[in-house]
């Protein structure tokens, strides 16, 4: 038998290596995208129109497309998600409704992104085509909105639940109505948590490809209306890489995308820290 102290040492080396490997994997992915993309990325890459059928020039249409779908997704998911969380925490007791909504949100969250793509195609692009304009940025944005709704419900739900009970009671004790208490106590205190959820949802909406892949077009033009088709960073990246159109532009796009995600991730972290400090206080 190996001496326990020896196996302890071996096991610890393995555990350290496992953690190290995570860091290495992350660094190699980030590093690779950075090295490959840094050559293409520049201000004009972001602000210029593509030329020569995406092979040269910039990626402005995809940037604008991504921006528009994210705005649409958030304008759908934020009011509904936060509203749902308010109802769940302030207007109703823990019970069948809260449980069912949580299960539904978790299930929705688990649905494969390509299934959202199928659904979006059948529902927004064909069934509601008179309202959405078919395969449009609006359809893409709403599909993403459906997809990030559970993230926003769950994080807002948690944020509001941690608002201290005694402060709420104090507010009621001073004669405030339910709506006043929600507006003056609950929402302000839960605000950083809600924002964190929105940022997370935003990151997810920007990074997703499969749900909207059937709704985009590769036309290198700036979308004029959300009822028309457009392109996003992710879908453009997919076509450029899959069809080998231009690896340079593909990596420039990937680096742009990663930079956005890094910024969002960083701000969510900052928010979260602020949030937990607030709690301790």
């Amino acid at each position: 038998m190996i001496h326990p102290n020896t196996s302890d040492k071996i096991a610890k080396i393995w555990l350290w290596l496992s953690a190290l490997s995570i860091i290495l994997v992350l660094l190699s992915i980030l590093g690779y995208v950075f090295i490959m993309g840094a050559g293409s990325l520049s201000v004009s890459f972001i602000l210029d129109m593509p030329t020569n059928n995406w092979r040269e020039g910039g990626i402005l249409p995809a940037i604008i497309g991504s921006l528009l779908v994210v705005i649409i997704a958030l304008s759908f998911a934020t009011p509904i998600g936060v509203g749902a969380a308010i109802y769940l925490t302030e207007f109703t007791k823990e019970g069948r409704l809260t449980k069912t909504v949580r299960i539904a949100a978790d299930s929705l969250n688990a649905i494969p992104s390509i299934v959202f793509g199928l659904f979006g195609l059948a529902f927004f692009v064909f069934y509601l085509k008179d309202y959405t304009g078919g395969p449009s940025l609006l359809s893409a944005g709403l599909t993403l909105g459906f997809m990030i709704l559970p993230t926003i419900i769950r994080t807002s739900d948690v944020a509001m639940r941690t608002v201290s009970f005694s402060e709420k009671m104090e507010s009621y004790g001073l004669g405030a109505t339910k709506l006043q208490t929600i507006k003056n106590i609950v929402l302000p205190e839960a605000f950083p948590g809600i924002i964190t959820g929105i940022i997370l949802g935003m990151g997810r909406a920007i990074g997703e490809t499969a749900p909207i892949i059937f709704m985009v077009s590769l036309n290198p033009v700036i979308p004029k209306t959300i009822f028309g088709s457009g392109n996003t960073l992710t879908t453009q990246l997919y076509y450029l890489a899959m069809e080998g159109i231009s690896m340079d532009v593909a990596f420039g796009t990937a680096l742009t995308l990663i930079t956005i995600i890094l910024i969002l991730n960083y701000s969510a972290r900052k928010m979260n820290n602020y949030f937990s400090r607030n709690l301790r206080r």
């Binding site: 860091i23 690779y32 995208v33 499969a210 990937a254 991730n265 972290r269």
Partner: peptide, 25 residues
């Protein structure tokens, strides 16, 4: 404090980027 953010970042990287990385490396 190094590993935790690394894991969060891994979770945040878009799947298409994983795909492109895998396709080449």
């Amino acid at each position: 404090e190094l590993v935790r953010p690394a894991i969060e970042l891994l979770a945040g990287i878009p799947s298409i980027i994983y795909g492109v990385f895998a396709l080449i490396i």
